[in-house]
Simulated assay, not measured.
Amino acid sequence: MSDDVLVCGSVAFDTITVFEGHFKDHILADSIQSLSVSFFVPTMRKEYGGCAGNIAYNLRLLGGRPVPVGTVGADAADYIVYLQQLGIDTSLIRVLPDMYTPQCFITTDLDNNQIASFHPGAMTHSADNDLSGREAAWAIVAPDAKEGMFAHARRLHAQGTPFIFDLGQAMPLFSGDDLNEMLQLAQVLTANDYEASIIEQRTGRTIAQIADGLQAAVVTRGAEGATLYAGGAETHIEPTQVMKVVDPTGCGDAHRAGLLYGLTEKWSLVDACRLANVMGGFKIASRGPQNHRPSRAEISAAMKQNYGVALLD
């Protein structure tokens, strides 16, 4: 049995700029109907990102064997080399030479308000990236083009590969019927508390009721930790102690990686959720989605400090 983890989702670039002022001073309510503004942004950084890229990065930190499943353009050559240098199998990243890699352009002001634009690029063809026949212990279907998410989910279900369904930023694309179909294919659901409320509203079922048809459902609650729904029980997973809060970007992806590692290693669901919280805690103390670099020893120490277990030793 392979211990690979198929990580289906976006592989993208994040370009982040900072406006050293306040949007509210330039976007005026009485002129919003003819908006035309330009912001001087003296600082800029470009980050490797995308849900599949971020989850694979964090899973590799843990010593896992992630295999990202994504669709990129020719401009992603440096990203692919970077992943390979980390020891990540990039054989299921499909390159479309006549398209751009998905890209998010974010401008932040001094109040931490954000204006963002997303170009899907090659991601619109993610459904054509066929993972059929690739053995894996677990998989995750993370935010991507809707057609790609369904294609991956159906292929994973058909070949008997258990997977996590992570709705995330794809939430606006899924109706109640879409969600119910995806939940019939998946083994585990992950969502933050806002996403969970939308899922409940659109399906007409509570998360506890949804979890009855799954192996588990995990709802993250930011600084309050997470809630595990499994086996008819609801378990609160205490949050970790965080040294500092720098940037929440990618925290959900880090959390998913911890959960996936625990599932692959056949840990208890509670311990897998604890590791997920630890990984989110490391991520939030670093700017950007892939710039935190804790060692396995440091992750194990954090597990011991926060939960009294050191399963990575």
Results as ranks from 00 to 15, higher is better:
Tyr261Ala: 04
Asp247Thr: 10
Pro289Arg: 05
Tyr57Phe: 09
Pro162Phe: 02
Asp178Gln: 02
Ala116Val: 14
Arg274Ala: 15
Pro239Met: 12
Ala276Leu: 09
Gly204Ser: 10
Arg274Ile: 12
Val278Tyr: 10
Ser175Ile: 05
Leu110Tyr: 10
Glu135Val: 14
Trp267Arg: 10
Gly225Thr: 04
Cys104Glu: 15
Trp138Ala: 07
Phe282Trp: 09
Tyr48Gln: 13
Arg293His: 13
Ala230Met: 00
Thr203Leu: 00
Phe165Lys: 00
Arg60His: 09
Ala76His: 13
Gln187Asp: 06
Leu156Ala: 07
Ser36Pro: 05
Gly9Cys: 08
Ala302Glu: 14
Tyr261His: 10
Asp130Ile: 08
Tyr79Ile: 03
Asp253Trp: 09
Val278His: 10
Asp247Ile: 09
Glu298Gly: 12
Met149Ser: 04
Gly252Tyr: 06
His292Leu: 06
Asp25Phe: 06
Gln187Ser: 04
His26Ser: 08
Asn54Cys: 14
Leu260Cys: 03
Gly160Asp: 14
Ala139Thr: 11
Tyr79Glu: 04
Pro248Phe: 09
Thr240Arg: 03
Asp247His: 10
His152Trp: 08
Gly204Phe: 07
Glu298His: 09
Val246Ser: 07
Ala211Gly: 02
Gln169Pro: 07
Gly204Gln: 08
Val270His: 02
Asp78Gln: 15
Glu47Phe: 15
Asp75Thr: 07
Met44Tyr: 11
Met171Leu: 10
Ala297Arg: 13
Gly63Gln: 11
Ile237Arg: 00
Val7Arg: 11
Val18Gln: 08
Asn180Trp: 02
Asp130Thr: 03
Val67Glu: 08
Asn54Thr: 13
Asp130Ala: 07
Ile106Asn: 10
Ala310Leu: 08
Pro172Asn: 07
Asp253Glu: 09
Ala297Phe: 10
Lys244Val: 09
Ser268His: 01
Asp4Ala: 12
Ile164Lys: 03
Val219Asp: 01
Ser295Asn: 05
Cys104Arg: 13
Val309Asp: 13
Arg256Trp: 09
Val5Met: 02
Ala272Val: 03
Ile199Tyr: 00
Ala216Lys: 02
Tyr100Thr: 15
Pro102Asp: 05
Leu131Asp: 14
Asp271Glu: 15
Asp166Pro: 01
Leu110Cys: 12
Thr90His: 08
Val278Ile: 11
Val7Gln: 13
Met123Gly: 10
Lys304Phe: 08
Gly121Glu: 06
Ser197Tyr: 01
Pro120Asp: 12
Ala170Asn: 03
Ser2Ile: 09
Leu167Ala: 01
Ala285Glu: 12
Met123Asp: 07
Ala12Glu: 10
Val188Gly: 01
Tyr82Thr: 10
Thr264Gly: 10
Ile55Leu: 13
Thr108Ser: 14
Met99Val: 07
Thr190Gly: 00
Asp212Leu: 00
Pro248Leu: 03
Met182Pro: 01
Gln241Trp: 15
Arg256Cys: 14
Asp313Gly: 15
Glu265Ile: 02
Arg293Gln: 15
Ser286Trp: 03
Arg134Val: 15
Ile140Glu: 04
Glu265Met: 04
Glu135Lys: 14
Lys46Ala: 05
Pro162Gln: 06
Val72Cys: 13
Pro120Trp: 05
Leu156Trp: 06
Gly73Trp: 09
